[in-house]
Structure formats: structure tokens, C-alpha cells
Write a protein that binds this DNA or RNA. Sequence first.
RNA 1: GGGCGCGUAGCUCAGCGGGAGAGCACUCGCUUCACACGCGAGGGGUCGCUGGUUCAAUCCCAGCCGCGCCCA
Length: 908
Amino acid sequence: MLDKTFDAKTVENDLYRQWEESGVFAANPEGNATPYTIMMPPPNVTGSLHMGHALTFTLQDVLIRYHRMRGRDALWQPGSDHAGIATQMVVERQLEAQGVTRHDLGRAGFIDKVWEWKAQSGGTIQRQLRALGASADWPRERFTMDDGLSAAVRRIFVMLHRDGLIYRDRRLVNWDPKLHTAISDLEVEQRETTGKMWYMRYPLAEDPSRFLVVGTTRPETMLGDTAVAVHPEDERYADLIGKTVRLPIVGREIPIVADDYADPEKGSGAVKITPAHDFNDFEVGRRNGLRLINIFDLNAALRGGPMELYVFTPEGHTEPLTDAAGTPLTETLPEAYQGLDRFAARDKVIAEIEAAGLLEKIDDNPMTVPYGDRSGVVIEPWLTEQWFVDAKELAKEPIKAVEEGRTRFVPTHWENTFFEWMRNIQPWCISRQIWWGHQVPAWFGPDGTAFVEESEEEALAAAETHYGKAVELVRDPDVLDTWFSSALWPFSTLGWPEQTPDLARYYPGDVLVTGFDIIFFWVARMMMFGHYAMGDVPFRDVYIHALVRDAKGQKMSKSKGNVIDPLDLIDQFGTDALRFTLAALAAQGRDIKMSEGRVQGSRNFATKLWNAARFCEMNDCRPADGFDPAAVKLTLNRWIIAKADAAAGKVAEGLDAYRFNDAAGAAYAFTWNTFCDWFVEFAKPLLSGEDAAARAETQATAAWVLGRILVLLHPFMPYVTEHLWQALTQGQGGQLIAARWPDSGALAAPEAEAEMDWVVELISTIRSVRSEMNVPPGGRLPLLVKDAGADTRQRLETHGALIERLARLESIALVDDAETKGAAQMVLGEATLLLPLAGVIDIDQEKARLGRDIAAQEKEMAKLDKKLGNPGFLAKAPPEVVAEQRERLDEATQTRDRLSAALARLEA
RNA sequence: GGGCGCGUAGCUCAGCGGGAGAGCACUCGCUUCACACGCGAGGGGUCGCUGGUUCAAUCCCAGCCGCGCCCA
């Protein structure tokens, strides 16, 4: 016997272990079934489960469980990524607590520490995923730093390099002065602030009494200015183009150039150009052949010693500027500035400019400032040599694939975001100046020539060929962006570069499920590398889900203190409740506002289901051997079977279209509002009645429908459904997770449906009037039915017992002409229902009620009359629509007439 | 400034060319033999505003107002 409520805590762990140990999560590469593949977006190894994870992994698990039940060979590939910067920071912080730096340990020693840390703390999220019920193929779990995946990184790096799609270049990168590494554009957060615009006067070299006023938000960079730009059509400055100004403080003579970048409307119309410290200025420098001077060191402090000068090559790259003898040319900053932090330098520059009378004015200026998303410090555009991926070239195939629908975004509007980014993509800086990650497979010879190979041996061999003798090589110390290895995930996890059977079978995946925030970081890059390495899309569909927010719609964040921990919700309401809530709220294109109340509602639903099962158990509703749902006799049973069949169709339709909310809603509505609210109540008289055949059929039907419900709800609520399945079949039904999802559509029964819908309406009508007339809930009344047609008579005959029970009637009688004095009257179809309420009924109240009903019908009639009186409507609307409106008018008219007759009788 | 999305019942949201829906909240009633994490009955909406297309607009189009996100 089942307990009174479902206690999630007592069953979840055991059931999960049972599933996992039975091997049902595993893909079956040897089988004949068509694969269904989802590559789990690998969570960060330092991560722990937050609400966003809970959503994304719930939806993936729903899909995986659904398709597994449909008979597909489901592969859900789990794993995690090594999160280069984040992990290195975590481990460094730990070391710091012991007073040790990574430099004390050395590179190899530090990396050992990271692996130690991973062994201890790296499995957190995998445990939490299990708590969430995630049915991933755990023995296949991969980590981006695994040997195989690392080999894949080296292989594709070498391939891309040979194809010229990876190259080394000296250009501006986003430099994080705290972490001492380059980061990609995507790792830079643009924050809105109100800064200042300082206007400085630069004296003309040939006439120091004349000035050019330049505006800047970063005065300290003036130390690296190599030009001033004005707009070519700006008449104010036309005569100055080609002349030079003398840079204050430094004394450098720099040209005045004409470039569209200078906006005549903005400030003075003249703009200082610092090509080594601003992305826009870099482009101006390239167009105008300007010099570059890198004035900052890796801490973004002003440099001490001599600073090299660079120039642009005709190809747009940069190279050191040398004298005729090939000796690099340098400059040195004024001594007072050397070693100053960038912000201290700013103050000093302004003070000195002001003291020299060269400060024109200072304005407030709304602007965006770049911050490192990991370090939180202001990012410095910095001139340095890095490895880049030619993203523009690699983007071509993915763009085509989306244009041609070979990869489909759901909802489709994310295509725009994807196209927008992919068509304007910049070179991707992939090298990082940290230790934890895949070290760049490049070795440098004595003259700086790079040998890019998969191993040191190959590099040495290549170098020997190149130099004609064996030489010593130094490996590039940098590592690759974590996303570089994550981009290989859809095929590296399947064994690539080996041509494994798994790779042939499970690539490409069916769907990638993720949030929009990593479309660029990850989705786009998987598509680039997938096409490059595999010649095909990495997945057919990309389902982009919403962000989970708090109940007020605010983004959850630790600093706001509004984070809801999914594990707390699981603890309070059970995993099924959390999962069902997330799925039911996952409507396309709208963010999810999570609140405890919603989860509580889902918990209540689980309890409702539990109690329905308990009812079945108490009434000996057990699955019958050889039960054929198409062969049942009783209308009631044919009706609920048809409804269950339709519900299965709706759930499947929802899931097939990634409409999780529709799917969850359909299962919920059928379970609660059809099965529990009506069928169970209808079944009661039969289950306790004398007719053994009817009882047996109803028991078997109830068990069958409950089984269907468990199947339909299993993807959403795996624990309670599995537990009930095994309890109700007493272990004879196997595991629900491995049960077959039903085909639907073959069990429709329109006549049974019409009949039972009529019964429902009859009971509802009587209940409504009882309530309105304040009939005591326990009081049983006789029901008189006037003008009943053949169908009505037959239906009353068939369902009399349950109508009496649910409408609380003492009897049902057919009458020709009834004593209506003191009776409440209702119209249902052709028949009029009378509830004699002599002594109870307030005649005036009843008249008013009938009057309201009549008015409502007449309002409807007026609306339909108007529509049907419109010649345009009759001429242009589809005939079936016109017919439907006519029918509705007829119905309303007849109902109105019967209500009027009832009113007349009351007044007689 | 560019792009995307959203304004429907008190709240959170479905619906998206032909009868305004759900959950929660609210009101009233209920020890009805599965369930008070429940049962029954209700109240509540010029479907942001203004135009247009259409026989017909909450739904399609345009503009406006308000809100959010992304990018510059």
C-alpha cells in the first residue's frame, strides 16, 4: 500500500542508482536503432549547479528520455571543460593561502597541483547532475584536458596552421593587466560609465602659437601618440594636413593626417591617434602608415627602458622599425613617468598639461569601458604577438549551413544574432599567457622560426630539415583559449581524429541545447570546427532556451543576493517538482521567472498523481494481461482511452517542436483535469458496483491509462513516475525509463467523447445551479428532465448512477410537463432540466438568474446576426466558417427560447 | 546609434486571423469512502496607444509610448 504522500527524498537516490547500474543510460552503438545524440555543453570544471544549469540539463534530459522511450539509440555525452583562466585562478588562490605562488612551484609543479585539485573538487557538478536525474552516458564522460581530446587539439591546430587558418601576428589584443594574458573579444565586458573628455592643445611644430585641440578620454595615452587626425573635408583644418604638431611633455613631432575616422561634429573635430593603444587608432595607423609605440608594460604601467617602434607592412601587419643597419629604433619616456601606473600617469599628464596652459576644458562624457570578465580590471588594448584563427574564413560554411537550413535555430530569430556576428567576425585570438590548458604545439628555432607540429619529435625533425642541421627548439609557453578545445567537443569526444565507429554513428548530433549567452563563445565555434574537421554540421538543431530570472524578473546574481539554489528547491520539493516547473515555464522566446510558489505547485501535482495511483491501487486496478485498449466496451472507458491517446499525441507534438511548456501542460491537464477530476469520479460507482464485467473492464482501463500517464510524465518527472510504475506492476513491468512511448491517434472515439462531454456538462450545470441557489452540499435533490430526445434518454439511462452521485441527486425522472413552481430550470441541448426546490428557492433570485442567462444568449445572437447579415462575410468567408456561425446562432436561439419558456413557466 | 524581444485577468504567463485561456492569488461553500500538497462553485480582462490591410484583427502591417536584452 502506498503512503499518503510521495516522499521524494526516500526514493530518488535509490532509483538513480538502479538506473545507472542497469546501464540504461548508455548508448548502444551495436544496435540497429537510429541514434539520437545530444552533446552536453560541458560545464566548467570549477562550476557548481546553478539555476541555469538546472534548466538546460532538465530540458536535455527530457529530450533524451523521450527519444530513448521512442526507441532511439540515445547518446547524451557528458563531460566538463578545463576552464583555463578560472581554474588557474582557483588553484592560485588556494596556493596563496599557503603563501605560495605558482612561480615558486614552476610550471610542471603547478600543473600537478591543478590536477590534484581537480581530483578532489572537480566532480561537484557531475554529482549534482545526478541529483537532477540527468540520464547521461557517464562511462563516456570526457574532460577537455584528457589525452584524447588534447591530441585532437594538437591535430586541428596543425591542420589549421598548414591551411593558413591559424597564424601568428603582432596586433592589438585585449590585455588583462591583472591576469597577464590576452583574452578574446568575448571575454571583455563593456560597462557603461560616465567618464571625462579632456581637451588638450597640441602646438603646431612650425608655429607654437597655433594649436590643434584634441579631445580624449584617456589622456595618458598621449605619450604614445604618433599622429593627429582631422576629417579630409573639414575646411577648418584643410591647410594643416601634412604639417606636424609638437607633442607636449614628450616633444615628439607627429604628423597631422586626414582620415574619415575624425568626426567633424565631435569635439574640436581633431583627434589624437595612438595606434598601439586603441583599436580604432590602430586602423587609422594602418591606413596612414603611422608608427606604433607600445608605452605600457604587462601591468599597464608606463615602461622604463627603451621602447621599440613598429611600422605597418604593406600587408597590414606590423614589424619593428630599424635603421639602415637593421638595428631597432627606440624611444624612451620622460623619466618622471617611467613605472607609473596608467591611472597615476593620467593624473600626472593632466596636471602637467594644465600647468603648461594647454588644457582647454573638461567635459563629462558617457562612455563604455572594457573590463575583463574574470579579473574585473580595465582591459588594455596592447600590441603583442599572439596566435590567431582566421574566423572569417571558417565562418563561411556555418553561415551557409544556417542559410540553407542544414542547421536550424529554434526559435528562428536567433539566426539573426548568429548571422550578425558571423558576418562581422574578427580574428580570434587563441593564445593565453597562462599555464593551465593546452600548450600551443609550436616550437621556435634560434632565429624565431616557428615549427608547428603535433609533437616535439616532429618539430625537431622539421627544424633539422629547415636548418640543414639539428638545432635546439624552445616551445611556445602559451596555452590555447579553453573554447578552442570546447569547439571540438562534438567530435573529439567521439574519438576524432581517429575515424572511430562512434564518430561515424553519432556525428552530427541531433540538437544542441543551450542559452543564448554562448552562441558566440561556443555554438558558432563548434560549427566552424565541425565543418572544417568533419565536413558537416555538428548538429541539426540548436535550441536556444531562456534565462532563468528571479520572481521579479531580475537576473540572478550573487551580488544582488537573489540567487535561488536549485539544490535547495530539490531538497524542499523534490527533483521532479523542480524539473516539471522548469519545463512548464520553458516557453520559447521568453525568460523564466522562477519562484518557490511555482515549484510548490508542481510538487502538489506530483502528489496528485501519487494519490491517483493510490486510488487505483486501492481499487485493484492492475494492468490486465492481454488488455486491448481498442476492444473495451463501456463508453466511459472508450472515452478515457481516447483522451489518453490524444494527450500522448499532444505531449509528443510539443516535444518534437521543442515546445516544452505545451508538452508539460498537456500532460498536466490530462492527468489532473480529465483523469483525476472526471474519470476517477465516474469510475467509482462501477468499481464498487455489482456488475463484475464492467468492474473488471474499468479496473483494467484505469490501470492502462495510469500507465500511459506515467509514460507521458516520465521525461519530466522521472522519479515519481518510475517509483509508481515499479510499485504498481510489482516489478513485473520492468523499468519505466526503458518503456516504449506509445504511438498515438489510433484510439479516437468521437461518439464516446461527445457522450461523456455531455455528461460532464450536465453535472457541471447542476452543480453550478446548486451552488448559486445555496443548496446545502449534502442535500440530495430529484432531477426532472423535460423534452428529452432519444440520445438524452439513452445517456441518462447509461450514466444515471454516476450522474446521481456526482450531481448529488436522489433520483432522475423523465417528465412531459412538469410542475415548475419553485423549480430551478436549466437548458442543456434540447432538454430542460428542473430541480424542484420548493421552499428553498427564492423565486425572484431564480427569475434574475434566468434573465441573466437569456441576456447572455441574446448578446451572442446579436453578434452572430450582425456577422451573418454582412454580405461581405457571406461572400468571402470560407463556407465552413459561415456554416459554423449559423449553427452557433441556431443553438443560441434555441437555448434562449427554452430559457424564455422556463422563465414564462415560473411567472405563470 | 543598430539589432532582437516583450507589453493579454491582481501576479506570472500561454494563445497569435473567425466563440478571451492556464497556474498562482482572491471570494464563497465543503471531515463527498485517492488526495486539505485536496474537492466544488465563483468574481475578475476597452488583449499598451493610434492608424492601416481584411468580410472579419488580441493575432498581420506601420507609427507611437513603455520595458528588457545584445551589439556599437
